[in-house]
Amino acid sequence: MIYPLRLVASVGGAARLLAAKGYRFVLGAHQYGRLTKQTLVRFPLIVKNLNITISHMYTLGIESIPLVTMIALFLGSATVTQAVYQMSGMIPFRYLGALVCKTTVTELAPVITSMVFAGRVATGIAAEVACMKNSEQLDAMNVLRLDPIRYLIVPKTVACIVMLPVLVIWANLMAFTGAALTVALTVDVTMHTYLSGKKIFFDAIDVYVGVGKTAIFGAIVAITGAYFGFTAKGGAEGVGNATTKAVVVSAVLILVFDFVVAILVM
């Protein structure tokens, strides 16, 4: 008699826990959506404070260049090395260039750059907003009728939307450089074979889509950082949790949207 009751109780408990978690998730998604909407409708207002946006473009974008350069160079080298290893004996090396080019331009450069960018920027935004919340600076802005979304989030979001594609273009160039260097220095393929292979299936649309989708990723990074900043709990631990969640959730969302874009383009 007791046992089935216990079973029911524990199943019930688990269900309730799951329901609570699900409810929190839905609530969070709703708030996230609302924040996104509030951010988007304020976009036209940036013309009045263009200087803030431009300074963010510098700190979020230009200052990421060394990091992106570094990563893209190795990304290119690794792709070539792996491709040569996988292809040898099966696929002629004149397709090497095409393979490397396509994977880099469509997936690797955009996604890896966005991930790195999320690690640098989403955390920064989340920490900044969370600290401002904890020290009542957001309250002070509200009381002074200075809309925090307009003055804090919109400039950063716009800066991310503009600068992440720029960084990805740069990452593409650097990845090609890295790949070419690797071909020249290590693997057993001639530069001529590699470069002529690049042109075989080259399609400009790949570049446009690859770079264009990162504008969305930029928005995801900024808004996710802002969301976890705004919802952060108090104290140093709250700020730490906010930054962690910001980077994890932006990485997941980037991959999800990458998949969505891939389906749409197909």
């Binding site: 900044e128 020290s135 009542e136 600076q137 309250d139 002070a140 009381v143 009728r145």
Partner: peptide, 20 residues
């Protein structure tokens, strides 16, 4: 509350200056 907000001002206990 926004329509009456401008009529109020506050000094916060911790000053709440914008530290950037």
């Amino acid at each position: 509350f926004n329509k009456v907000r401008k009529r109020f001002g506050i000094l916060f206990q911790g000053a709440a200056l914008f530290d950037s």
